[in-house]
């Protein structure tokens, strides 16, 4: 007698995936087309079509808006210029489009999930563990089923990225909402706010720094998925890294890797900057 009771999940899972592919594959491919034509391609076309100096200017302005310091904004802009110098501008724009769309989708899905989790203990007990599993599961495990269901290319890469990167956003939205000062909420309540008024006028604005910290982490995780996503045919900087590694062109791989790091730093500074705007006020509030 074996100590381990034999248990084989492979066949049922394989059959489930197969039947999903046959039954819903076509419809999901339509969804793929929708995201692609409606969201990603227009953005990508705009980014790739715009003159690089316009993009650099936007980066500079955003960085300045976020940090209010030219000492930060200027180096970030130069870093992006540098990526162009590597001959990777086009790849950079493709990656940026990918990361932006993934982030937008993550926010669209993650913010409501976070709100739901914050308002219902029972739902939180369901949502958060599921997210943890999604985040911990080795990416390739759902990357290949994503290809089966959505086809090769950017959309399954984006969806896999969303699955992977949504977790911190939901968590920090939930946390931010639950940390909103109960006195302030009670006061708002006493004036006869509806749930929506409370959520939009009080809770979300006060949870904003926490939510933006979540967005920041989500973007970072999305960027870290870029290379993995290239393994299912997403183009951009990740593909450069992958091709560099796979053809033993270490220089090419490292150069593209460096470009990803520079992009990450730029996005990180900018999103963190926006999250910090209201913090001094909060700190003072705590002191009083």
């Amino acid at each position: 007698m074996d100590f381990f009771v034999p248990l084989d999940l492979r066949e049922p899972i394989n059959q489930a995936v197969d039947s999903l592919v046959v039954r819903y594959g076509d419809r999901l491919h339509v969804l793929n087309d929708l995201i692609l034509q409606g969201l990603l391609l227009p953005l990508e076309r705009a980014l790739r079509g715009a003159p690089p100096w316009v993009i650099l200017l936007v980066v500079a302005l955003l960085a300045w808006r976020a940090t209010r310091r030219w000492q930060v904004a200027l180096p970030l802009t130069v870093a992006c210029y540098l990526i162009g110098c590597f001959g990777l501008w086009d790849a950079l724009m493709q990656t940026l489009a990918l990361v932006l769309v993934a982030t937008v989708l993550a926010v669209v899905a993650g913010l409501p999930l976070g709100i739901v989790a914050a308002h219902s203990r029972r739902l939180r007990a369901v949502v958060l563990p599921v997210l943890d599993v999604m985040q911990t599961l080795p990416t390739f495990v759902y990357l290949i089923p994503a290809v089966m269901l959505f086809g090769l290319g950017k959309v399954p890469a984006i969806l896999a990225t969303v699955v992977y990167a949504i977790c911190p956003l939901v968590r920090l939205t939930d946390l931010g909402l639950r940390q909103v000062d109960p006195d302030v909420q009670e006061a708002a309540h006493s004036f006869g706010t509806t749930r929506w008024q409370m959520l939009l006028g009080v809770q979300l604005p006060l949870a904003w720094p926490s939510i933006l910290a979540g967005v920041n982490q989500t973007v970072m995780m999305a960027l870290s998925m870029v290379v993995v996503a290239s393994m299912i045919g997403a183009r951009g900087l990740g593909e450069e890294v992958l091709a560099g590694i796979q053809t033993l062109d270490v220089g090419r791989g490292l150069q593209a890797g460096l470009a990803i790091v520079l992009l990450a730093v730029a996005i990180d500074r900018i999103t963190q900057g926006f999250g910090r705007v209201r913090r001094p006020i909060r700190d003072e509030e705590r002191r009083s």
Partner: peptide
């Protein structure tokens, strides 16, 4: 009116 004011800080 509340003891700890309950003003909206934002």
């Amino acid at each position: 009116v509340f003891q700890h004011f309950g003003l909206l800080p934002h």
